[in-house]
Amino acid sequence: MQTFAFWALAAAAVGTGVAVFAVDSMARATFSLLASFLCVAGLLLLAGLQYLGALVVLMMVMEMLVMAVFMIMYMMNPAGLMPMTMVHNRRGALLVSGGLFAVMAAGILLVRWPERRGRPPADPTADLGMALMGPKMLVMMVIGIAILATMIASVVLAVRGGRYGRAEGDGAGGDGANGGGAG
């Protein structure tokens, strides 16, 4: 049963991943990506990683909803009412990715992988929590600082404003490096 669930989720994850670049609608592409993430979260849960599986579900649902908003903001064809082709060098990309998959698959099947050391803990979530609050505290602190830095950097990049505050109009009153109107 578990093996069947694994392969069903794996096929769905890859299939919906392919669909991201095959469907006509930007909204459908976003939700295909979300489906792929949810299938991967299912794989994590099957592996016994309950916390990380739940984290992927919660984070990706929010992230894909934000992405859907951006899609509708920036793309000319969010509803997929007409076929769209926004690709370049499709054949080259297919060759590179297909060739890489063949090499990786050959390596995966030919390499002699090491034996498992130890057994999975009874409660992997507790194990992770104890590690993060103990010997791996530095990792958690670096992650926190990285998130803070990203929040500041993304706001600085995204906000229309100059060095001394918000620019007026289309940049006429501002002297900021990233101010100025679009177009």
Binding site: A13, V14, G17, V18, V20, F21, M26, S36, V40, M67, F70, M71, Y74, M75, M86, V87, H88, N89, R90, G92, A93, L94, V96, S97, G98, L100, F101, M104, A105, I108
Partner: peptide, 18 residues
């Protein structure tokens, strides 16, 4: 590997930054 290569195809071939 399959997921990584599908993503690589998208990263190499898509014109839209999103």
């Amino acid at each position: 590997a399959a997921l990584f290569c599908v993503g690589l195809f998208g990263a190499l071939s898509q014109q839209s930054i999103v």
